[in-house]
Amino acid sequence: MYATVIDPDPLMRPVIPFHGRAKLNYGQGLVSGLSRVAIWAEANDGWAVVDEALAGLAEQDSDGARNATRYLRARRNLIEARDILPNPGFEANVADTNAVEGIHWTAEGCPPGWSSWIRPGSAAELQWIKDPVRSGEYAVMLKGVAGAACYIKSVPIEAGKSYLCSAWAWAKHQNPRRVELKVQWQDAQGKWFTGAGPVGDSVREPDTRGWVPLECMFTAPEGAAYAVVAVLCEGMEPD
């Protein structure tokens, strides 16, 4: 059963509690801390201070220093960055209407270019909504998820290149860690690539914070041709 059902579609695997697995290939907690630095710089016109810190990091020969430099430079230049994810804001008036579908994926009722997935045997209410939204005109909502469900999208990547993946989430639930931004991999034939583990980020605080950023930065693994981006909820019933 596992080899014939689970291996072809890793989304069927039970969701492991987020704190129990590697968060991202840039180091546990690194992006979370750097995100706070970037948010401070954006709010206080403090990029000059960050640039000085980056100059110091450039003198250090370590993976941590290199990864921190890549992340902060990406955040520093977000306006100039190219968004490779079609329709990242779940909007209606976009050109990309080709949703890639996998096992148990469906594009019915989804934003253009996106699919949804509900683990077989699970119950979930997935909605494409206009309120509440953080920006733009639309958002997606996952409600009453008894099991696991997600909105999902596959996007081409280049092995060896670094990417920043981010989203905003509002987890109105007593266990917000079950709301997650997750990235997995497919090979050039569209089959699940298991040569590298998933990366991602999850909501850590109760819903009193409102919208919170989720981010992960990763280097695309050799052998992967697509990043499969999912906004995932697990075990959210009855909220």
Rank of each mutant, 00 (worst) to 15 (best):
M1S: 08
M1Y: 12
A3H: 01
T4A: 05
V5Y: 11
D7E: 07
P8V: 12
V15N: 00
H19F: 07
H19Y: 13
A22N: 09
G29M: 08
L30N: 05
V31H: 00
S32D: 09
G33Q: 10
L34R: 01
S35T: 13
I39V: 11
I39S: 06
W40H: 13
A41Y: 07
E42D: 11
E42H: 07
N44A: 08
D45I: 07
G46E: 11
V49P: 13
E52Y: 14
A53L: 12
L54R: 04
L54I: 14
A55I: 02
L57W: 04
A58V: 09
E59V: 15
S62K: 06
D63G: 02
N67A: 14
T69S: 15
L72N: 08
A74L: 12
R75F: 01
L78F: 04
L78Q: 15
I79W: 10
N87M: 00
P88Q: 03
F90M: 04
E91P: 00
A92E: 13
N98K: 12
H104P: 07
G109Y: 06
C110W: 02
P111C: 09
P112D: 01
P112R: 04
G113P: 06
S115H: 10
W117Y: 09
W117F: 15
I118T: 14
R119V: 14
P120S: 08
Q127E: 15
W128A: 05
W128Y: 10
I129R: 12
V133H: 07
R134A: 13
R134F: 15
Y138T: 08
A139Y: 03
V140K: 06
A146C: 05
G147M: 02
A148M: 13
I152W: 00
I152P: 00
K153M: 03
P156A: 11
I157H: 01
S162H: 06
Y163M: 02
Y163I: 08
W170S: 01
P176S: 06
V179S: 03
V179C: 12
L181Y: 12
L181E: 01
L181I: 08
V183N: 04
K191Y: 14
F193S: 03
G195Q: 04
A196R: 08
G197K: 01
V199Y: 00
S202Y: 10
P206M: 14
P206V: 02
D207P: 10
D207W: 11
D207S: 15
R209W: 11
G210M: 15
P213Y: 03
C216L: 14
M217C: 09
F218N: 02
A220E: 03
P221Q: 13
A227F: 00
A227I: 09
L232F: 01
L232M: 15
M236C: 09
M236L: 15
E237N: 05
P238K: 03
